[in-house]
Nucleic acid binder design. Structure first.
Length: 237
DNA sequence: TTGATAATAT
DNA sequence: GATATTATCA
């Protein structure tokens, strides 16, 4: 006797409760401390500031997390004072599947502080991750398209409400822009919808059960060579 | 530019 | 008090 009034999402909740079962999106976030314990490149650039970028790709989807340290311009960041050792980014396919799923809060070499409270580097919204985001919003509907619900639906480890909220804002802004553009056509400087972006964010938010998370790889060209596509068009190119 | 964060509102 | 949304910073 399930109430039929319950929308589709009601069923989602029934299927969701098993995050362990469905974990298509497992992101292995490496805390700075962990990275430290992992491997410290002996060749320390004396004066060469190499961009510290950690590219963790999950074998399932291939989400890549990129940590960027504010090396440009010595801006004293009171909040971000996590000195991450320069790691060599591997643009190629890292087959390092030897990643132990040890808890992030595990005792790391010399790190007595709980990684749980450690601040994570900037979150890079990859097309796949964004797809999930859009999918979650689409399935939830504007009504329930709240950061918390979205986060829960995404079931992305490491993803916090703040992350979704931040992105959600941009997402809404993008939609608003489009809607406003559709209504009035007064372009100040340009105004053009990028096909790539349009395809990404131009997903109509219709609360339909449909299929959850479509092909996540569709976003990726797959032809080799990742292209950093801009999620949000500046409107002027 | 994009994402995090502070402040604010509900 | 917690969560959502807005605004601003980096």
């Amino acid at each position: 006797m399930r109430e039929e009034d319950s929308n589709w999402f009601s069923r989602w909740e029934e299927d969701l409760p098993s995050p362990d079962e469905l974990m298509p999106l497992s992101q292995t976030l490496i805390t700075p401390d962990l990275a430290l314990a992992f491997d410290i490149p002996p060749n320390r650039s004396p004066n060469s500031n190499s961009p510290i970028s950690q590219t963790l790709i999950t074998p399932d989807l291939g989400l890549s997390f990129d940590v960027t340290t504010p090396n440009s311009t010595n801006s004293s960041s009171p909040r971000r004072g996590v000195p991450v050792p320069p790691l060599t980014p591997s643009p190629t396919e890292p087959h390092s599947s030897e990643f132990d799923s040890t808890e992030l809060g595990s005792c790391v070499g010399g790190g007595d502080e709980p990684a749980r409270t450690l601040k994570r580097p900037r979150l890079v919204w990859t097309p796949q991750l964004h797809k999930r985001f859009v999918d979650a919003v689409g399935h939830l509907g504007i009504k329930n398209a709240v950061p918390k619900t979205i986060m829960q639906l995404m079931s992305v480890e490491g993803l916090t409400r703040e992350n979704v909220a931040s992105h959600l804002q941009k997402y809404r802004l993008y939609l608003k822009r489009m809607q406003g553009l559709s209504s009035g056509g007064s372009g100040g400087g340009g105004g053009g919808s990028d096909a790539a972006t349009d395809h990404l964010m131009g997903a109509p938010i219709s609360a339909h059960p449909g299929s959850f998370i479509e092909d996540l790889e569709s976003a990726n060209g797959g032809g080799g060579g990742r292209k950093v596509l801009t999620l949000f068009p500046t409107g002027d190119d």
